[in-house]
Write a protein that binds this DNA or RNA. Structure first.
Length: 231
DNA sequence: CCCTGATTCGC
DNA sequence: GCGAATCAGG
C-alpha cells in the first residue's frame, strides 16, 4: 500500500483525534503500526502522550556504553550508539491522562444528559464517518468531497439483512452511516429524511449543528458519532 | 506478557 | 520516503 492523499488525510485526522497508531493502522489497512508512526513523524505531526519519555536517568547503557573511552578506532562496529547521544527533548507535557473517551454514541432520542464543556472554545461537530466538520473560520483543507474510507462491495450477510445498506440508499431515506464501512454491521440510518436534507431530522441535528447561528445556545455536544472503534 | 509511541537505519 | 527492528515506559 502506498500513501495516497486520502490515506494521509485519514491518518492526520485520526492521529489528531487521538487514536492510537495501532487503531489507525488497523483502520487504514495494509500498513503496520510502525508505518503509521513513521509516516506521522515524517508528516511533522508528532508528539502525543508517549509512554516513553525522558530517559534522563542513566546514559543509556543499552549498547556500547563506553562513556569513558572515547573509542579511538573501535574495530568492532558499534551499531547504534555510534553517534553521540544527545539529551532528549523530553517535552514537559502537562500530564493529560484519560483517553479520548469522547466516543459515546448516545442512544437515539435521548440526548438529554451531556456534559457542558466550558473550556471548549469553539464547537466542533463530527460528521458522518467520524469526520470533523470545521467552521468557516478554520478551514484547512478541502475535504468536502465524500469521506472516502475503504468501501467494500456491500457484502450481503445475515447480520445486515434488515439493515439499510448502501444499495438501499435513495434520496428519501436518511443516509447517516451507522458503524464503519468495511465492518460487518455497517449500515445506514434509513429513517425518512428531513425534507430537503440527506438525513433524518435527528441526524440533521448532528450533521448541521455547528452551522447554527452563533447565538444559538445548543451545547449538547454531539455525542460524537462513534469514533473509529465503536463496537 | 501486553500495550504504547520514538528512533534508528537499511532499503 | 518507507517501515521493520529496536528501544523504552506503562
Amino acid at each position: 500500500m502506498s500513501w495516497t492523499d486520502e490515506r494521509i488525510e485519514s491518518l492526520r485526522t485520526m492521529w489528531e483525534k487521538g487514536l492510537t497508531a495501532s487503531q489507525i493502522a488497523d483502520e487504514l489497512g495494509g500498513v503496520s503500526r510502525n508505518a503509521v508512526i513513521g509516516k506521522a513523524h515524517r508528516l511533522g505531526l508528532k508528539s502525543r502522550p508517549s509512554p516513553v519519555k525522558a530517559t534522563d536517568k542513566v546514559a543509556k547503557p543499552v549498547k556500547a556504553a563506553a562513556p569513558a573511552a572515547p573509542k579511538p578506532a573501535t574495530p568492532v562496529a558499534a551499531p547504534r550508539a555510534a553517534a553521540p547521544v544527545a539529551p532528549r527533548p523530553a517535552a514537559p507535557a502537562p500530564k493529560l491522562d484519560a483517553k479520548p473517551a469522547i466516543d459515546t454514541p448516545n442512544a437515539d432520542g435521548g440526548l438529554g444528559d451531556v456534559i457542558p464543556k466550558a473550556d471548549q472554545p469553539r464547537i466542533v461537530s463530527i460528521g458522518p464517518g467520524g469526520f470533523i466538520r470545521q467552521g468557516p473560520g478554520d478551514q484547512q483543507a478541502p475535504i468536502p468531497p465524500a469521506p472516502p474510507r475503504r468501501l467494500v462491495p456491500a457484502k450481503p450477510s445475515p447480520e445486515i439483512a434488515d439493515k439499510t445498506t448502501l444499495l438501499d440508499l435513495n434520496d428519501r431515506i436518511c443516509r447517516w452511516p451507522m458503524g464503519h464501512p468495511g465492518e460487518p454491521d455497517f449500515h445506514f440510518c434509513g429513517e425518512a429524511v428531513n425534507p430537503g436534507f440527506p438525513y433524518c431530522v435527528q441526524h440533521c441535528g448532528r450533521a448541521y449543528q455547528a452551522q447554527l447561528p452563533r447565538g444559538t445556545r445548543r451545547p449538547p455536544p454531539p455525542p460524537p458519532f462513534g469514533g473509529p472503534r465503536v463496537r
